[in-house]
């Protein structure tokens, strides 16, 4: 390895789905019973568990992300979130703002915590509803998620999404923070093609952003999910003053 910034990383060394599969296994989620699959040994079980973990994350995204981006957009957002998580660097040195004294380091890898929570959603769905999480109607999935997401200490009313998704206590909130932190979400929230954090001609500065048409929302999400890395907006600090 050279002395570069990213060369020290090995993006393939973690996989959220592998972690989630382990969590499913640890919680003894009965694969065979729910999938009508007899199982063919440890390797097959792991593959099934990873598949189930993927379906769980898709089902979670389908329940908590907005309908406006379409089912395809929600699935692709789940893919983007997974890729973001797989490329997460634990305890990375965070940026220090202009005028700030401290050097801060980021959170630990949220993957193990979130994968356990994902597995727990599956388990609680089976125990409460006698069905897999992904099989439940979206309203029921949202109800289950609300029960599982801990209320943050202190004043919860009006609470914003975590600036850094990795700081989210629950995978559902992490997914929301990641999704709404991207520039495409700002376009959705303002129904306008703002294109934040993209290269935009200076001479167009004075123009009002064009309105976002209905089809634009899903298309924007798809474009973003295809990109190698996600981008966030919600956590950006106020500009240096």
């Amino acid at each position: 390895m050279t002395d570069g910034v990213d060369d020290a990383r090995d993006p393939g060394r973690r996989s959220f789905l592998r972690q989630a599969a382990v969590a499913l296994s640890a919680l003894s989620v009965p694969l065979a019973a729910c999938r009508g699959d007899g199982g063919a040994g440890e390797e097959s079980d792991r593959a099934l568990q990873e598949e189930l973990a993927g379906e769980l994350l898709d089902a979670l995204a389908d329940a908590v992300l907005p309908s406006e981006i379409g089912a395809g957009g929600r699935t692709e957002a789940a893919d983007g979130f997974r890729a973001w998580l797989d490329d997460f660097e634990p305890v990375a040195e965070l940026t220090h703002d202009y005028g700030s004294q401290a050097v801060h380091y980021g959170p630990e890898d949220p993957g193990p915590r979130w994968s356990s929570q994902l597995a727990a959603l599956e388990l609680v769905a089976r125990r409460r509803e006698d069905a897999g999480f992904a099989e439940l109607p979206a309203d029921d999935r949202r109800r289950l998620v609300r029960r599982r997401v801990p209320e943050p200490p202190g004043e919860a009313a009006g609470r914003g999404l975590p600036g850094n998704p990795a700081e989210a206590e629950h995978v559902a909130v992490g997914l929301l923070a990641w999704f709404y932190g991207r520039p495409e979400a700002a376009d959705l929230g303002y129904r306008a093609r703002i294109g934040r954090f993209t290269c935009r001609p200076l001479e167009q500065s004075g123009e009002r952003p064009a309105p976002l048409s209905e089809g634009d929302a899903a298309a924007a999400v798809r474009r973003e999910s295809a990109a190698p890395r996600s981008r966030r907006t919600a956590a950006r600090p106020e500009p240096a003053s």
């Binding site: 907005p66 309908s67 949202r142 609300r146 609470r159 914003g160 999404l161 929230g189 919600a234």
Partner: peptide
């Protein structure tokens, strides 16, 4: 900014969050 919880402290999910933001 988009919010995780509304003024009553209720977790916003699905379309609710986007509507609240807008």
């Amino acid at each position: 900014q988009p919010r995780a919880r509304d003024g009553d402290g209720r977790l916003l999910l699905g379309d609710e969050l986007l509507e609240d933001w807008r």
